[in-house]
Computed example of a mutant assay.
Amino acid sequence: MALLYRADLTPGKLDHIAAWLPGRPWYGGPASPSLERVAACRFDDPAGEVGVETILVRAEPGGPIFHTPLTYRGTPLDGADAWLLGTSEHSVLGQRWIYDAAGDPVYAAVLAAAILTGGTEAAEQISTDDGLMARAPMMSVRGTGSAGTPVPAVTAVTEVVDDDPTLVTTDGPALALVRVLGGDRPHGPALLWDEQVLAVIRDM
């Protein structure tokens, strides 16, 4: 379950993505995009410490959809300055460090688990004054694997090649993240959205 809050985030997530996208080698949109959020969903960090979110955005009407997964942390991730989009003030949780998820081992771990075990996005619950309220995610994803499949542990990201696909090497499975949807689809066990490949495991 992903626990969310009715809260303000300043600057907002789309503000960070809009400032970060033009510097990506796989981005080909406007230099100062005004982003549209196409869809989003959450994954669970088993330790309950790191927010993990898949966000799909569009930089211009009718333009391509970009896959921009993020992680949110209450303290900086050691050695991950290259993947830091910036910090924001969360009105409930305080300061949050926002990362391109490609550089975060928690994202690699939950992504590999979802792919290999046929997992899906997390159920979302919003904390309110009246208790927890269920909220339907904006999108549904699924892994192509099967329940009960062993998942190798991931504790570190050792290399990231920021391309499309973005190649993520870990101390467990190696992953490839599709950044611009609608192009060539890499092959392998995959995470799918509306039958489009978002990510694959390229090596165990």
Rank of each mutant, 00 (worst) to 15 (best):
A102Y: 02
D81H: 01
P61F: 11
P76L: 02
D130P: 14
H67E: 12
P69G: 14
P61C: 06
E124S: 06
M139H: 07
H90T: 05
S127L: 10
A108Q: 13
Q125H: 05
Q95L: 13
A136P: 15
T54K: 13
D81F: 00
A123Q: 13
A108K: 10
L111P: 03
A102K: 11
P105L: 07
G48N: 12
T54Q: 15
A122M: 10
M138F: 06
T71I: 14
T87A: 01
T54L: 15
G103T: 04
E60C: 04
G74E: 06
I115M: 12
G63Y: 06
Q125W: 06
Q125N: 07
D81C: 00
I98P: 01
V52A: 14
T117Q: 15
D100L: 04
V50N: 09
I98D: 00
P105K: 04
I98T: 14
G62F: 03
A80E: 01
A80F: 00
E124V: 08
Y99M: 05
I98E: 01
V106Y: 04
L85V: 04
L111G: 02
W83Y: 06
I55Y: 01
F66L: 14
M138S: 11
Y72P: 14
A113P: 02
A108P: 12
A59F: 03
W83D: 02
A82F: 00
V52L: 15
P46K: 08
V50L: 15
V141K: 05
Y107A: 09
A47S: 11
P137I: 09
A113G: 08
L111Y: 03
A136T: 13
I126S: 05
V92A: 10
L111W: 01
R73D: 01
A134L: 15
S127D: 13
G103R: 06
H67T: 05
E121R: 04
I115V: 15
I126K: 08
G131P: 15
G79D: 00
P105V: 05
V50A: 12
T68D: 03
L84F: 00
D104T: 09
L111C: 12
Q125K: 05
